[in-house]
């Protein structure tokens, strides 16, 4: 596995984490829990943005692995 694909898989995991957090926030009836999940979701979204940029950067650096 190249670094590029590793980061890519990490990026998709982060995406799923974000979606999971959102589901839990909606499911929960507890106001505090909903707030906590939303807060965590916001943080994860920032990480997702950074990783998105990194994935693009790495795909430019490793053009030989692009199919």
């Amino acid at each position: 596995m190249t670094v590029g694909s590793q980061v890519k898989s990490c990026y998709s995991t982060i995406k799923s984490v974000e979606a999971n957090l959102e589901t839990l926030a909606i499911q929960s009836n507890e106001r505090e829990a909903t707030e906590a999940f939303h807060k965590a979701q916001a943080i994860v979204r920032e990480i997702k943005k950074d990783l998105d940029k990194q994935v693009i950067l790495l795909s430019q650096e490793e053009p030989q692995y692009k199919q």
Binding site: L24, A36, A40, V44, E46, D50, L51
Partner: peptide, 20 residues
């Protein structure tokens, strides 16, 4: 730096939600 910053951020998020 970007990885380190985000790793810390994720730890922060984990701390927030882990009780729930």
């Amino acid at each position: 730096q970007m990885y380190e910053k985000n790793s810390k951020k994720l730890q922060e998020a984990l701390d927030i939600v882990s009780p729930y």
